[in-house]
Design a protein around this nucleic acid. Structure first.
Length: 281
DNA sequence: TATTAAATAT
DNA sequence: GATATTTAAT
Protein backbone atom coordinates (compact mmCIF):
# COMPACT_ATOMS: atom_id res chain seq x y z
CA UNK A 1 0.00 0.00 0.00
CA UNK A 2 2.91 2.28 0.51
CA UNK A 3 4.56 1.38 -2.69
CA UNK A 4 3.23 4.32 -4.61
CA UNK A 5 4.11 6.76 -1.86
CA UNK A 6 7.55 5.34 -1.61
CA UNK A 7 8.03 5.66 -5.30
CA UNK A 8 6.82 9.22 -5.20
CA UNK A 9 9.28 10.02 -2.46
CA UNK A 10 12.13 8.53 -4.37
CA UNK A 11 11.23 10.51 -7.42
CA UNK A 12 10.94 13.71 -5.49
CA UNK A 13 14.23 13.06 -3.88
CA UNK A 14 15.76 12.49 -7.22
CA UNK A 15 14.28 15.63 -8.62
CA UNK A 16 15.90 17.52 -5.78
CA UNK A 17 19.22 15.98 -6.52
CA UNK A 18 18.92 16.84 -10.15
CA UNK A 19 17.95 20.38 -9.35
CA UNK A 20 20.92 20.69 -7.08
CA UNK A 21 23.21 19.52 -9.83
CA UNK A 22 21.56 21.87 -12.22
CA UNK A 23 22.33 24.77 -9.91
CA UNK A 24 25.93 23.67 -9.77
CA UNK A 25 26.46 23.69 -13.48
CA UNK A 26 24.46 26.79 -14.14
CA UNK A 27 27.61 28.82 -13.72
CA UNK A 28 29.14 26.94 -16.56
CA UNK A 29 26.17 27.15 -18.80
CA UNK A 30 28.19 27.92 -21.86
CA UNK A 31 30.51 25.00 -21.45
CA UNK A 32 27.81 22.52 -20.58
CA UNK A 33 24.68 23.52 -22.47
CA UNK A 34 23.74 19.98 -23.15
CA UNK A 35 24.12 18.83 -19.59
CA UNK A 36 21.84 21.62 -18.59
CA UNK A 37 19.34 20.67 -21.20
CA UNK A 38 19.42 17.06 -20.19
CA UNK A 39 18.90 18.00 -16.59
CA UNK A 40 16.02 20.23 -17.48
CA UNK A 41 14.42 17.53 -19.52
CA UNK A 42 14.90 14.97 -16.83
CA UNK A 43 13.54 17.23 -14.14
CA UNK A 44 10.44 18.18 -16.03
CA UNK A 45 9.87 14.60 -16.94
CA UNK A 46 10.25 13.44 -13.39
CA UNK A 47 7.96 16.13 -12.15
CA UNK A 48 5.30 15.06 -14.54
CA UNK A 49 5.77 11.55 -13.42
CA UNK A 50 5.37 12.34 -9.77
CA UNK A 51 2.24 14.28 -10.52
CA UNK A 52 0.59 11.62 -12.57
CA UNK A 53 2.14 8.76 -10.70
CA UNK A 54 2.29 6.79 -13.86
CA UNK A 55 4.59 3.96 -14.48
CA UNK A 56 8.02 5.50 -14.61
CA UNK A 57 9.17 5.42 -18.16
CA UNK A 58 12.14 7.41 -17.11
CA UNK A 59 14.22 4.36 -16.61
CA UNK A 60 14.35 4.20 -20.35
CA UNK A 61 15.88 7.58 -20.35
CA UNK A 62 18.11 7.79 -17.34
CA UNK A 63 19.11 5.40 -14.72
CA UNK A 64 17.80 6.46 -11.36
CA UNK A 65 20.12 4.26 -9.47
CA UNK A 66 23.37 4.80 -11.23
CA UNK A 67 25.16 7.95 -12.14
CA UNK A 68 25.52 8.85 -15.76
CA UNK A 69 28.88 8.22 -17.19
CA UNK A 70 30.24 10.20 -20.04
CA UNK A 71 33.01 7.83 -20.77
CA UNK A 72 32.63 4.15 -20.71
CA UNK A 73 34.98 1.29 -21.00
CA UNK A 74 34.75 -1.88 -22.93
CA UNK A 75 33.09 -3.90 -20.19
CA UNK A 76 30.52 -1.33 -19.32
CA UNK A 77 29.54 -0.65 -22.83
CA UNK A 78 26.73 -3.11 -23.07
CA UNK A 79 25.05 -1.79 -20.01
CA UNK A 80 25.61 1.73 -21.06
CA UNK A 81 24.17 1.11 -24.48
CA UNK A 82 20.81 0.69 -22.88
CA UNK A 83 20.75 4.22 -21.66
CA UNK A 84 21.01 6.26 -24.72
CA UNK A 85 20.30 9.84 -25.22
CA UNK A 86 20.99 12.17 -28.00
CA UNK A 87 23.46 14.89 -27.58
CA UNK A 88 23.86 17.53 -30.18
CA UNK A 89 26.57 20.02 -29.75
CA UNK A 90 24.77 23.23 -30.15
CA UNK A 91 26.91 26.11 -29.13
CA UNK A 92 30.19 24.43 -29.41
CA UNK A 93 32.56 25.80 -32.00
CA UNK A 94 32.52 22.43 -33.64
CA UNK A 95 28.92 22.94 -34.57
CA UNK A 96 30.26 25.31 -37.14
CA UNK A 97 31.33 22.30 -39.04
CA UNK A 98 28.83 21.47 -41.66
CA UNK A 99 26.88 18.31 -41.39
CA UNK A 100 27.56 17.12 -44.85
CA UNK A 101 25.92 14.19 -46.50
CA UNK A 102 29.23 12.44 -46.45
CA UNK A 103 29.52 12.90 -42.76
CA UNK A 104 26.15 11.42 -42.21
CA UNK A 105 27.02 8.63 -44.57
CA UNK A 106 30.31 7.94 -42.84
CA UNK A 107 28.67 7.97 -39.48
CA UNK A 108 26.09 5.52 -40.62
CA UNK A 109 28.82 3.34 -41.99
CA UNK A 110 30.61 3.36 -38.69
CA UNK A 111 27.32 2.53 -37.12
CA UNK A 112 26.75 -0.37 -39.42
CA UNK A 113 30.19 -1.72 -38.74
CA UNK A 114 29.81 -1.49 -35.05
CA UNK A 115 26.35 -2.83 -34.59
CA UNK A 116 25.80 -4.91 -37.64
CA UNK A 117 23.47 -7.52 -36.30
CA UNK A 118 22.28 -5.93 -33.11
CA UNK A 119 18.91 -4.39 -32.59
CA UNK A 120 20.76 -1.43 -33.85
CA UNK A 121 19.81 2.05 -32.92
CA UNK A 122 21.35 4.64 -35.04
CA UNK A 123 23.76 6.72 -33.20
CA UNK A 124 24.51 9.77 -35.15
CA UNK A 125 27.31 11.88 -33.98
CA UNK A 126 27.75 15.47 -34.64
CA UNK A 127 31.07 16.28 -36.28
CA UNK A 128 34.03 16.01 -34.01
CA UNK A 129 32.40 13.76 -31.52
CA UNK A 130 34.37 10.69 -32.27
CA UNK A 131 37.52 9.76 -30.49
CA UNK A 132 40.69 9.47 -32.52
CA UNK A 133 40.00 5.81 -32.89
CA UNK A 134 36.55 6.56 -34.22
CA UNK A 135 34.86 5.32 -31.12
CA UNK A 136 31.95 7.21 -29.79
CA UNK A 137 32.35 9.35 -26.79
CA UNK A 138 28.75 10.10 -26.15
CA UNK A 139 25.75 8.03 -26.83
CA UNK A 140 22.68 8.77 -28.82
CA UNK A 141 19.03 8.37 -28.09
CA UNK A 142 16.89 5.31 -28.18
CA UNK A 143 14.97 6.59 -31.09
CA UNK A 144 16.37 7.07 -34.55
CA UNK A 145 17.71 10.56 -34.31
CA UNK A 146 17.51 13.13 -37.02
CA UNK A 147 19.74 16.12 -36.98
CA UNK A 148 17.81 19.15 -35.86
CA UNK A 149 16.58 21.32 -38.70
CA UNK A 150 19.33 23.86 -38.35
CA UNK A 151 21.90 21.12 -38.82
CA UNK A 152 20.02 19.67 -41.72
CA UNK A 153 20.18 23.09 -43.26
CA UNK A 154 23.92 23.08 -42.85
CA UNK A 155 24.09 19.77 -44.62
CA UNK A 156 23.25 21.42 -47.88
CA UNK A 157 26.37 22.15 -49.74
CA UNK A 158 26.25 24.20 -52.85
CA UNK A 159 26.42 22.24 -56.02
CA UNK A 160 29.74 22.45 -57.71
CA UNK A 161 30.07 24.93 -60.48
CA UNK A 162 31.76 23.48 -63.45
CA UNK A 163 34.09 25.88 -65.18
CA UNK A 164 33.66 24.94 -68.78
CA UNK A 165 36.21 26.13 -71.32
CA UNK A 166 33.72 28.69 -72.55
CA UNK A 167 33.15 30.00 -69.10
CA UNK A 168 36.84 30.14 -68.46
CA UNK A 169 37.28 31.94 -71.73
CA UNK A 170 34.82 34.57 -70.59
CA UNK A 171 36.66 34.76 -67.33
CA UNK A 172 40.00 35.33 -68.99
CA UNK A 173 38.54 37.86 -71.38
CA UNK A 174 37.13 39.73 -68.47
CA UNK A 175 40.47 39.63 -66.73
CA UNK A 176 42.20 41.08 -69.73
CA UNK A 177 39.65 43.81 -70.07
CA UNK A 178 40.00 44.66 -66.43
CA UNK A 179 43.75 44.88 -66.37
CA UNK A 180 44.88 41.35 -65.58
CA UNK A 181 44.47 38.91 -62.72
CA UNK A 182 46.43 41.04 -60.32
CA UNK A 183 44.10 43.99 -60.46
CA UNK A 184 40.76 42.62 -61.48
CA UNK A 185 38.42 41.96 -58.61
CA UNK A 186 35.80 39.22 -58.49
CA UNK A 187 32.80 41.48 -58.58
CA UNK A 188 33.98 43.33 -61.63
CA UNK A 189 34.93 40.13 -63.32
CA UNK A 190 31.52 38.66 -62.75
CA UNK A 191 29.79 41.74 -64.03
CA UNK A 192 32.00 41.78 -67.05
CA UNK A 193 31.37 38.14 -67.79
CA UNK A 194 27.65 38.75 -67.85
CA UNK A 195 26.98 35.22 -66.85
CA UNK A 196 23.77 35.40 -64.94
CA UNK A 197 24.21 32.26 -62.95
CA UNK A 198 27.67 33.04 -61.66
CA UNK A 199 28.17 34.21 -58.15
CA UNK A 200 30.91 36.40 -56.76
CA UNK A 201 32.11 33.56 -54.62
CA UNK A 202 32.51 31.30 -57.57
CA UNK A 203 34.45 33.90 -59.45
CA UNK A 204 36.49 34.60 -56.39
CA UNK A 205 37.36 30.98 -55.98
CA UNK A 206 38.28 30.61 -59.60
CA UNK A 207 40.36 33.74 -59.48
CA UNK A 208 42.23 32.43 -56.50
CA UNK A 209 43.03 29.25 -58.31
CA UNK A 210 44.02 31.17 -61.38
CA UNK A 211 46.38 33.39 -59.47
CA UNK A 212 47.90 30.43 -57.75
CA UNK A 213 48.51 28.79 -61.05
CA UNK A 214 50.23 31.86 -62.35
CA UNK A 215 52.40 32.04 -59.29
CA UNK A 216 53.30 28.42 -59.66
CA UNK A 217 54.16 28.91 -63.29
CA UNK A 218 56.29 31.87 -62.37
CA UNK A 219 58.27 29.99 -59.83
CA UNK A 220 58.75 27.09 -62.16
CA UNK A 221 59.98 29.46 -64.78
CA UNK A 222 62.42 31.02 -62.35
CA UNK A 223 63.77 27.67 -61.33
CA UNK A 224 64.20 26.70 -64.91
CA UNK A 225 66.14 29.79 -65.76
CA UNK A 226 68.32 29.26 -62.73
CA UNK A 227 69.12 25.83 -63.97
CA UNK A 228 69.76 27.13 -67.42
CA UNK A 229 72.14 29.67 -66.00
CA UNK A 230 73.92 26.86 -64.26
CA UNK A 231 73.40 28.07 -60.68
CA UNK A 232 71.38 25.18 -59.52
CA UNK A 233 74.03 22.78 -58.37
CA UNK A 234 72.07 21.50 -55.47
CA UNK A 235 69.93 18.47 -55.09
CA UNK A 236 67.88 17.34 -58.00
CA UNK A 237 64.69 18.64 -56.33
CA UNK A 238 61.86 20.28 -58.20
CA UNK A 239 63.52 20.66 -61.52
CA UNK A 240 64.35 17.03 -61.94
CA UNK A 241 60.87 16.03 -60.97
CA UNK A 242 59.37 16.58 -64.33
CA UNK A 243 60.84 16.59 -67.76
CA UNK A 244 61.08 19.89 -69.54
CA UNK A 245 58.71 18.80 -72.20
CA UNK A 246 55.86 18.36 -69.77
CA UNK A 247 52.73 20.09 -70.83
CA UNK A 248 52.25 21.93 -67.56
CA UNK A 249 55.54 23.65 -67.80
CA UNK A 250 55.15 27.41 -67.84
CA UNK A 251 55.05 27.48 -71.58
CA UNK A 252 52.45 24.85 -72.01
CA UNK A 253 48.82 24.58 -71.05
CA UNK A 254 47.80 23.10 -67.76
CA UNK A 255 44.83 20.85 -68.01
CA UNK A 256 42.36 21.27 -65.27
CA UNK A 257 39.91 18.47 -65.67
CA UNK A 258 36.46 19.38 -64.64
CA UNK A 259 35.36 17.43 -61.66
CA UNK A 260 31.83 17.00 -62.79
CA UNK A 261 31.42 13.53 -64.08
CA UNK A 262 28.99 14.20 -66.85
CA UNK A 263 28.72 16.94 -69.33
CA UNK A 264 31.57 19.21 -68.52
CA UNK A 265 34.52 19.11 -70.78
CA UNK A 266 37.94 20.19 -69.78
CA UNK A 267 38.45 23.55 -68.39
CA UNK A 268 41.93 24.84 -68.54
CA UNK A 269 44.21 27.47 -67.30
CA UNK A 270 46.04 27.60 -70.57
CA UNK A 271 45.45 31.31 -70.81
CA UNK A 272 47.22 31.94 -67.60
CA UNK A 273 50.42 32.64 -69.42
CA UNK A 274 48.83 35.13 -71.74
CA UNK A 275 47.31 37.00 -68.93
CA UNK A 276 50.48 36.89 -66.92
CA UNK A 277 52.20 39.30 -69.22
CA UNK A 278 49.41 41.77 -68.74
CA UNK A 279 49.17 41.77 -65.03
CA UNK A 280 50.53 44.48 -62.89
CA UNK A 281 50.21 44.21 -59.19
C1' DT B 1 46.44 7.50 -51.23
C1' DA B 2 47.61 11.92 -53.50
C1' DT B 3 46.17 15.65 -56.05
C1' DT B 4 43.39 19.43 -56.78
C1' DA B 5 38.89 22.09 -58.20
C1' DA B 6 35.53 24.25 -55.93
C1' DA B 7 33.24 25.65 -51.70
C1' DT B 8 33.48 27.68 -47.50
C1' DA B 9 35.68 29.97 -43.43
C1' DT B 10 38.60 33.44 -41.59
C1' DG C 1 38.82 41.14 -51.32
C1' DA C 2 42.64 38.03 -50.07
C1' DT C 3 43.98 34.04 -48.18
C1' DA C 4 43.47 29.66 -45.58
C1' DT C 5 41.08 25.61 -44.91
C1' DT C 6 37.83 21.99 -45.98
C1' DT C 7 35.29 19.04 -48.95
C1' DA C 8 34.83 16.04 -52.54
C1' DA C 9 36.04 14.06 -57.03
C1' DT C 10 39.22 11.51 -59.48
Amino acid sequence: MNVAVEKGCKLEEHVKKLEEEKRKIQGSELELPLCLQILNDAISYLKKETETDTQPLLKDFISLSKPIREEHDEEGEELFKEKKFQLWRENDHISNARFSDTKIKNTLEIERDEEKSSNSLYMLLSPGMTTPKGRRKLVASSFVPQPPPYLQQQALRKQRRCWTPELHRLFVDALQQLGGPGVAIPKQIREHMQEESLTNDEVKSHLQKYRLHIRKSDSNLEKQSVVVLGFNFGEGGETSKRSNSQSDSPQGPLQLPCTTTTTCGDSSMEDAEDAKSERRD
